[in-house]
């Protein structure tokens, strides 16, 4: 019996329906907040967000050799640089996986949507080649992905009503990004347990795992929403009839820090704060992931709740910095509410 092939994904731009239609399970490689990095990976990537370095280390160590192929999204400088390095390493035989770039610039309008649609067609060819499947059936793939999207909408609703911690929500998103849709939907649906704390929103860079959220929530806060691609802004669920429709959906996605204007980010954050009734915002950005820092001024101006930020977070300081930020935010909320 052969198992369903898996296509690895670095980044958040992949239209998962395409991989599913080719008979593969899209499996996102997320990295981690903590852990050593090798000298080889550091030197190959240079000055780079440490999460990308950790993903490269995993690949170099063979941790993902079971994948049929790897798609890297051009959704951040870090991921694009990782693709360039992997392409060279694949040519040398140092990386065994077939590697492909998925390039989907943000912005609406026909030039960009036309380009993205053509890249989706190319992605389809890549997925079919690595899985050895026949012509992709977008419609068939849509059903299971739609169901997962529905489960995630339910998760977001439960988050807003205090029935899911932020850490549990991130774990659910991780399941959705790494498991087969049917299996993931069951995992997502299971997450329903009362949660307490001052409601806050997390903005900034992505979270490779839930450890930082757990640290924040230990300080009496409850993360009821977020705007990064490993949380509520993950692109999991939407499906289209064809490449052109998927390209239009891509153009309408929530703005992410690395590829969007600060004004878009600020407007989206303000809407999220209102929707979730959050009383404060924490912005966290790792060292060498500077895009969130550029959004801060606009974000502060757009919301009427306190925002506490930590930028240039060192590789080994994420939880410490997050706890520090959480305490500061909690104190400010408490003072302002008194």
């Amino acid at each position: 019996m052969t198992s369903t092939p898996r296509v690895g994904v670095v980044g958040a731009d992949l239209p998962r329906q395409v991989a599913l239609a080719a008979g593969a399970v899209p499996t996102r490689l997320l990295g981690a907040w903590e852990g050593d990095t090798s000298r080889e990976a550091r030197e190959l990537l240079g000055a780079m967000d440490v999460v990308a370095v950790r993903i490269l280390d995993e690949i170099l160590a063979g941790a993902h050799d079971h994948l049929a192929g790897l798609v890297v999204c051009n959704d951040s400088s870090a991921n694009l640089r990782l693709f360039y390095v992997l392409r060279v390493l694949a040519e040398r035989g140092r990386v065994r996986l077939p590697v492909s770039l998925f390039d989907a610039p943000r912005g609406s309008g026909s030039p960009r949507e036309h380009f993205v649609a053509r890249r989706i067609a190319r992605l389809t060819e890549f997925c079919e080649a690595v899985t050895g499947s026949g012509p992709s059936d977008f419609a068939a793939a849509a059903a299971s992905e739609d169901a997962l999207g529905g489960a995630l909408r339910g998760l977001r609703a439960r988050r807003r009503s205090g029935r899911v911690t932020g850490a549990a929500a991130l774990d659910a998103y991780r399941a959705a990004a790494t498991l087969a849709p049917e299996e993931a939907a069951l995992e997502v649906d299971r997450v329903d347990r009362s949660a307490a704390g001052i409601p806050v929103v997390v903005t900034g860079g992505s979270h490779p795992d839930s450890s930082v959220y757990a640290a924040i929530e230990n300080e009496g806060l409850l993360v009821v929403g977020d705007d990064h691609d490993t949380g509520d802004a993950a692109w999991i669920g939407p499906t289209g009839r064809d490449a052109a429709e998927i390209a239009r959906l891509h153009a309408a996605r929530p703005p992410l820090a690395q590829r969007s204007r600060s004004s878009e980010r600020a407007a989206a954050l303000a809407a999220l704060v209102t929707e979730t009734k959050a009383r404060g915002v924490i912005s966290l950005a790792r060292e060498l992931d500077d895009a969130p820092a550029w959004d801060l001024a606009a974000q502060r101006a757009a919301i009427d709740v306190p925002l506490v930020a930590r930028t240039r977070i060192a590789p080994d300081a994420a939880r410490t910095q997050a706890v520090d930020a959480a305490r500061e935010l909690r104190d400010r909320i408490t003072e302002e509410g008194a």
Binding site: E43, L44, L45, G46, A47, S77, L80, R81, Y84, V85, V88, L288, D290
Partner: peptide, 11 residues
């Protein structure tokens, strides 16, 4: 001279 935004410096 390697700037933070320069890709491919190591290679």
């Amino acid at each position: 001279l390697v700037a933070d935004d320069a890709a491919g410096a190591g290679l």
